[in-house]
Design a protein around this nucleic acid. Structure first.
Lengths: 232, 232
DNA sequence: AGGCTTTTGTGAACGTGTGCACAAAGCTGA
DNA sequence: TCAGCTTTGTGCACACGTTCACAAAAGCCT
């Protein structure tokens, strides 16, 4: 389940405060979910609670860590050392939970060779060798969108089956390869959508702005030209 | 719907290539979804397709942009100018679609005053004033986790009702405020989970490691001490 | 020892989202 | 004008995730 990491984080916080046991109600509140859902999720791992008492925090932390595979470490390669790749390389959150940044790669030979976060950036040419030698199991793509699919293909060909994609593209991968995507502009657009709904009292935008009539569409127009219609 | 931004991106790409119309089948493939689902999503906006032909690309781009509220621009404030905040400030993906970084803020007076991405970083003390004067409608939290809830509360008090949270915490907000979260380590943990499942042939970790027996738990232990059990 | 309280684990109802399949609609060409 | 082809829009069934509600279990207090 995709909620286990959330529970794990809440449990870790409790653990640091020295709390020995926690009820499903408390833990659910901390994770922001329904308590019945939480119990069902945990029961999927086995019966690790004690009725009338709750769950043993330390024990549950271990069980979830094990289920998530965090008892081993996962070497991660970051491909594309631009703004975001740079930030991720320096991000402390990786190492804290079983993830280790094993390699940084970039297609630009001016970037390759630089030291970032204590590591030397390698060139894309070495991708296959690095993946093999360092047993990299997870690839993080932080390249520009046009390069993402090509990088993805090379990662898959090199044997990687888990990819975290920050590039704003839909990656196509063969069966058996997991891709998760993080897309900032999509998140913002969803927020904008809801924000607009809240202030829906304003005069609604016209359904058929002259600039966007479907009839006689310019067809070949080099586009990018969003109609600049700005409702009042 | 949360898929509209995906469609919009695919449509924009088609638009740039000068494609005049597109069928639900093609667009669905580009967005990586089922064609029936796509048609249903689009029909929710109204009947903008032509049977036997497909959808007019430019027209649909406009309709979706309007639905998402992208025909107006949304001033965004980034709070917490660390690695990630720095990267986001320089990220071009914001401006490209109706979003404008209106302000950068940080609690550290050594950071406030610096110029980043052509803007002067302001101090947190000015948050309320900045939100009011610049009509900021979306707050992006890139602070460390412990500071996130406090920042969130101040944003909400200042009148912001949409928050994009990068800090690894569950934010609690009053009714009517939308929070979306982007959590790198959760994404990685989900990948690790599936990765472990794939290689599930390895000798399973023990169910009851001595280090994590629930009986006689150390209780007050200052935790953070994940059992260091590493199966084999 | 036995009843009372607390809390888990889960059966069952509910709601939502997904995908199939097909009729209606529009275009094209003769 | 009309037949035939293409593609949308949607009714329907299904599967999944969510939530309620409660019985069984465990601890505690008298």
């Amino acid at each position: 389940m995709a909620r286990l990491p959330l529970y794990l984080r809440a449990l870790s916080a409790l653990s640091e405060r020295g709390v020995p046991t926690v009820s499903s109600e408390e833990l659910a509140a901390a994770a922001g979910v329904n308590s019945a859902k939480l119990r069902k999720d945990l029961s999927y791992l086995g019966s690790y609670g004690t009725r009338g008492v709750g769950y043993d925090v330390e024990y549950l932390v271990y069980q979830i860590s094990r289920e998530l595979g965090l008892t081993q470490d996962w070497p991660v390669a970051i491909i594309g050392i631009g703004n975001l790749g740079h930030a991720l390389a320096n991000y402390g959150g990786f190492a804290s939970r079983g993830f280790r940044v094993a390699a940084l790669l970039d297609a630009d030979r001016a970037v390759a060779g630089q030291r970032i976060a204590g590591m030397v950036v390698r060139h894309m040419d070495d991708l296959e060798q690095i993946v093999r030698d360092d047993h990299v199991s997870i690839g993080v793509i932080t390249t520009p969108a046009p390069a993402a699919q090509g990088v993805c293909d090379r990662l898959v060909a090199a044997g990687i089956t888990s990819i975290l994609n920050f590039a704003p593209t839909v990656l196509s991968v063969p069966e058996g390869v997991d891709v998760r995507k993080v897309d900032l502009s999509i998140e913002l657009q969803i927020l904008a959508f809801h924000e607009q709904r809240k202030s829906a009292v304003d005069p609604a935008a016209p359904d058929l702005p002259a600039a966007a009539q479907p009839a006689a569409s310019p067809a070949g127009g080099p586009a990018g030209d969003l109609p600049e219609v700005m409702p009042a």
